[in-house]
C-alpha cells in the first residue's frame, strides 16, 4: 500500500518537473554551439572530419579486408558515432551533479533530472549526427566506390540505438553517483574511455585480432556491450542484404539488452540510495 503511494508520488513529481527536463535538454543543445560561427553545422562536421582523419590513419592498415569491411570509412563511422554518443553522454552525466552543486544546495530538485537530461541532450545531437552517415553512404553509392547495399533491414538499427541509450543512461547514473564521492573517477574515466575505444572493434575488425574462434580473449572482448551494440548497428547498415543473418546474432542482442537493463537498474538504485548524501559532498 505504502509502496504504491510512493511510486505514484514519484510519477507526480516527475510530471511536475518534466518542464525542467525539457528546458535542460534544450539548454544543453542550444548552448553547445552558441558563439561559434558554424553553429549546429559542427554536429555534422566534427564526425565527418574525424572519419576522414581516422580513415587516413587506419585505412591502409585495416581497410584492405574488403569482404569484412565493405567500405572502410562507413564501417568506421558506424562505430565511431555510436561510441562517441556513449563516451560523451556518460562523461556529461558524470559531471552533471557536481556542476549543479550551487542549485542542489539551495533548492529542492529531483536530482536524477540532471544526468537524465545530459544523456537525452547528447542523444538528440547523436540522432542529428546520424545524417552524416546518410550523406557519406550516398556519396560512396553515387560515386560507385565500394557501394553499400541499403535494404529495409536498416529499420532494425533502432534496436541497438535503444539499447545503447539505456546502457549509457545506466553507466551515466553510476558515474554521477561515484564522482560525487570520489573526484578521481573523472580522471580515471577519461583514460578508461580511451582504452575502451581501442578494445572495441571500431577502427579494426574483430577478425584482425587473430584470436581463434571461441578463445578466451575473444570472449572477453565480446563481454563489452559496446561491441555487440556496434556490431548489430553495422549489420543493419552495411549487411542489410542476404548476409544479414550471418552478421546479426540473437544471442548477442539478448546479452546486450540484459547488460543495458542491469546497468540501468544498478545505476538508478545506486543513485537513489545515495542522493540524499550528495549535498554533503558537493
Amino acid at each position: 500500500m505504502k509502496k504504491e503511494k510512493s511510486i505514484k508520488g514519484h510519477g507526480e513529481n516527475f510530471m511536475k518537473y518534466r518542464f525542467l527536463l525539457s528546458e535542460l535538454v534544450h539548454k544543453n543543445i542550444k548552448l553547445q554551439y552558441r558563439d561559434s560561427v558554424l553553429g549546429m553545422l559542427w554536429t555534422f562536421l566534427q564526425p565527418l572530419l574525424m572519419m576522414i582523419v581516422l580513415s587516413f590513419v587506419f585505412g591502409t592498415l585495416f581497410g584492405r579486408d574488403s569482404s569484412k569491411v565493405v567500405n572502410y570509412p562507413v564501417y568506421l563511422l558506424c562505430g565511431r558515432l555510436l561510441f562517441d554518443f556513449f563516451s560523451s553522454s556518460t562523461k556529461r552525466a558524470m559531471k552533471s551533479i557536481r556542476n549543479r552543486a550551487s542549485i542542489i544546495k539551495k533548492v529542492y530538485v529531483p536530482k536524477y533530472i540532471y544526468p537524465l537530461s545530459s544523456v537525452i541532450s547528447t542523444f538528440v545531437t547523436f540522432l542529428i549526427s546520424l545524417l552524416v552517415l546518410v550523406v557519406v553512404i550516398l556519396f560512396f553509392n553515387i560515386a560507385n566506390i565500394n557501394p553499400i547495399h541499403i535494404t529495409w533491414r536498416i529499420v532494425f538499427a533502432v534496436v541497438p540505438i535503444l539499447i545503447l541509450f539505456v546502457f549509457s543512461l545506466g553507466v551515466g547514473m553510476i558515474l554521477a553517483t561515484l564522482s560525487v564521492f570520489f573526484r578521481d573517477i573523472e580522471n580515471i574515466y577519461d583514460v578508461l574511455t580511451t582504452l575502451l575505444f581501442y578494445v572495441t572493434p571500431i577502427v579494426y575488425t574483430i577478425d584482425r585480432l587473430g584470436f581463434a574462434a571461441g578463445s578466451i580473449e575473444l570472449k572477453i572482448i565480446k563481454l563489452n556491450p559496446l561491441y555487440g551494440i556496434i556490431d548489430m548497428f553495422r549489420a543493419c547498415v552495411i549487411w542489410g542484404g542476404d548476409a544479414f543473418w550471418q552478421h546479426w546474432s540473437m544471442h548477442l542482442m539478448l546479452y546486450c539488452c540484459a547488460a543495458a537493463v542491469v546497468c540501468l537498474v544498478v545505476g538508478f538504485l545506486l543513485f537513489y540510495k545515495f542522493q540524499d548524501k550528495f549535498i554533503l559532498h558537493i
Binding site: K16, L20, L31, V107, V109
Partner: peptide, 22 residues
C-alpha cells in the same frame, strides 16, 4: 543559483522557473 550565465534573461526566466518546479 538557478541561472545560466550564457543564457539570455528571457531564457533564464524559463530555466529558473522550471528549476522552481513551475
Amino acid at each position: 543559483a538557478g541561472f545560466d550565465q550564457n543564457y539570455s534573461g528571457r531564457e533564464n526566466i524559463f530555466l529558473y522557473g522550471a528549476t522552481m518546479g513551475f
